[in-house]
Design a protein around this nucleic acid. Structure first.
Lengths: 328, 328
DNA sequence: CTGAAAGCGCTAACAA
DNA sequence: TTGTTAGCGCTTTCAG
C-alpha cells in the first residue's frame, strides 16, 4: 500500500505535485503529469481518503435516518438519495433507528464526530428536540415527515390533501361507512391524514364515528390485519377503509380475504404506492408519492446546506392511483 | 468545535492525557480524569473521527454490497449486519450496484481508498474476478451467494437441498407436472436450485421438460407474473410451480389469480420467506432462510478477517414453511 | 510550473 | 501517572 510520498519519490517530484495530479489541477505540465501517472500505475497507488478527509475536514458521507429499512416506502427514496449522492461524490450511511433512542444517539454522534457531513431524517419517531439541537450546528434535512413551523428545511407531500382526495374517492363510489386505519397520532403525517379523512367526511355531511377509527402500534402488515379484524367486529360494519400506509392497507386486505365474506366487498385505499400494491389480490388503490424524486431533491437540499446555501421547503405532488380494491 | 488541544489546555494537561481519557485508558488518576471530563463538558467537545481514523488507519465502516435494496430478502440480513456491526463500534455503508459495473468500481475503490475496512458481498451479479482481486488485499466475505472452490470465505444455505425438499413436497402432494421459475443460470444459487428441482423429479422418475422451466430476467414481481403467463400457455399446463425467489412466486400467484381459472388450483412454492409471503392470497409456501442470523454471522466473519484471523465457511439450516399456496 | 513546509486531530512510543 | 513528540496521508499556501 503505497502512499503519496512514495509516488513522489518514484516520479522524482514533490508530494505537492502528486496531489495536484490526483486532484486534476491544471497547473501541471503534461510531462510531469505523465511521470506521476506512471508511478501511480507502477506502485498500484490508491490515495487514502483518511488523509484527505482529515485534511479537508469532511467525510463526504451523508447520514440517512429511518425507522426501519423493511418498509418498502423507504426503498425508492433511498434510491433517489443514493443516486444523487454518488453523482456528487458522496456516499450514504443508512441508519435504522428501530425507533430506539440509543440508536439515535449513536447516529447523532457520528455527525458530531465528523463521520458524516449532514443528515437526512425520514424517521417520524425521531426525538425532534435532539434533532433540532443537532440542526443548530450541522446540516439537517427532513424528508417526508417534517415539523410544522420548525426551523429544519423539509421536503414532503401534502398529506392532508392526499387523504382528503382518497376518502372523497371512496365517498363518490357510494360509500358512507368509511373506516380509518391510522398509526399513533404523535406523528404529524398521521394527524394530517386523519384531518384529510375528516374533512372529506364533513364536506359530505357524513358523521365521524370513533369506533371506525383504529390506531395501530406500527406500520407492519400484521398491524393492518389486526386493525381490520377489529373493524369487522364493529356493530355496524364499514363498507370502505382508508389506511394511512400501504403496508397497513395490504394487511387489511388480507383480513378481509380471510373472513371469506359473502357480503358486499369492502373498498380499500392505501397510501404510498409501494411495489407490492400491484401484487395484492385485489390490487390496491393508493396515493402515489414521487418517492425517487423526493430522495433526489432531499439530497440536493442537504448538499446545499453543507455548502452553507439557503434552501426552500418543498411540497411535491401526489396522485391517486385507482386499482381493483375500489373497483369491485 | 473544539479539538483535543483546546481540551488539554483548558484542563491543564497534555493532549496525551486527554486521549487516554477518551479511550478509557485506566492509567489516569481520578482527579486528572475529572479535570479533563469537566473541560470536555465545558467546551462541548466531540472527538473527531477523522483524526482518529487517520491515526489508526481504519475507517470502522463496513461495505455491504447488494444488487437492489428493494428485494425484501436483503432487509433482514441487513438488520443482522447492522446490529452486529454497531455492537462492535462499526457502521455499514449500504451499496446498491443495481447490477451496474460502474457502481461496483466506485464501491471497490472505497475499500482501496481506506474508506471501508472490509466488504460483505450479497450481490450475485458482482464481477467475481474483480472481487477476487480485491479479496487478495482486503477483507471480503460472501453472504448468501458464493463461489464454489473459491478463496473468499462465505456463509450460505444449502440451496440445492432446500430446492429438492421444496419440489419433493410438491410431488408428495400428488403433483407431477411441476414447473420451475428461475433466474439467469449464471448465478450459482439459480444453478443449485435448479439442480435440487431436477434431483427431486429424477428421484420420482418424473421427466424434466424444458418447456416448464422458465428463466426470468430479474427477481422483481413482474418477471414472476410474466413467467407464469408463459407457463400457463404451454400445451400441457403444469399443476405446480417452484420459483427460486418469493418475489417471483408472488408474481406467479398474481398471474394465476388473474387468469380467473375454474380448473384445479396451481400449487406454488417460493424461496426466502420474505414478510410479504404471509400477506398474499393464498399465503405462500416457501423456504425460510435464517436471514438475520446470516447477517450477524457474516459480520462476525468479516470482523475476524479484519483482525487477520482465519474463518471457516458456514452453511446455515433452512426450513420449509407450508402455507395455503400448497394446501388448496 | 514546481517544491518546501505547515498542519488537519488524533494516538502511542518513549521518557520522565 | 503524565508529558513530549513523531507521524498517520493528504492538501494548500507561499516562495521560487
Amino acid at each position: 500500500m503505497a502512499n503519496i510520498q512514495q509516488i513522489a519519490k518514484r516520479a522524482g517530484v514533490s508530494v505537492a505535485t502528486v496531489s495536484r495530479v490526483l486532484n486534476k489541477s491544471t497547473t501541471v505540465s503534461p510531462k510531469t503529469r505523465n511521470k506521476v501517472e506512471v508511478a501511480i500505475k507502477e506502485l498500484n497507488y490508491e490515495p487514502s481518503m483518511l488523509g484527505r478527509n482529515l485534511r479537508n475536514s469532511e467525510s463526504r458521507l451523508l447520514l440517512v435516518l429511518l425507522p426501519n429499512i423493511a418498509n418498502p416506502f423507504y426503498t425508492e427514496i433511498i434510491n433517489g438519495i443514493q443516486d444523487t449522492a454518488i453523482a456528487r461524490d458522496y456516499n450514504i450511511l443508512l441508519c435504522e433507528t428501530d425507533s430506539k433512542p440509543e440508536r439515535e444517539n449513536i447516529y447523532f454522534n457520528m455527525v458530531k464526530n465528523k463521520l458524516a457531513d449532514g443528515v437526512i431524517s425520514m424517521d417520524p419517531t425521531v426525538n425532534m428536540q435532539k434533532l433540532n439541537e443537532l440542526a443548530e450546528h450541522y446540516p439537517v434535512i427532513l424528508c417526508s415527515e417534517y415539523e410544522e413551523n420548525g426551523d429544519i428545511p423539509y421536503i414532503t407531500v401534502d398529506s392532508e390533501l392526499a387523504a382528503y382526495q382518497a376518502v372523497k374517492h371512496l365517498i363518490k363510489l357510494g360509500n358512507e361507512k368509511i373506516a380509518l386505519i391510522t398509526s399513533d397520532e404523535k406523528y404529524l403525517y398521521a394527524r394530517l391524514r386523519r384531518a384529510g379523512y375528516e374533512r372529506a367526511l364533513e364536506e359530505f355531511n357524513i358523521p365521524i364515528r370513533e369506533e371506525w377509527i383504529y390506531h395501530t402500534k406500527g406500520l407492519e402488515f400484521q398491524y393492518g390485519v389486526h386493525a381490520m379484524r377489529i373493524l369487522l367486529q364493529q356493530e355496524i360494519e364499514p363498507t370502505a377503509v382508508f389506511a394511512i400506509s400501504d403496508t397497513l392497507a395490504i394487511g387489511a386486505l388480507k383480513a378481509i380475504n380471510m373472513e371469506a365474506r359473502d357480503q358486499e366487498p369492502i373498498a380499500v385505499v392505501g397510501f404510498d404506492n409501494i411495489s407490492f400494491a400491484s401484487m395484492t389480490n385485489p390490487t390496491l388503490t393508493t396515493i402515489s408519492q414521487p418517492m425517487y424524486t423526493m430522495g433526489c431533491r432531499a439530497t440536493e437540499m442537504l448538499l446545499s446546506r453543507i455548502k452553507k446555501e439557503k434552501v426552500e421547503n418543498i411540497v411535491l405532488d401526489h396522485e391517486l392511483i385507482i386499482r381493483e380494491s375500489t373497483m369491485l
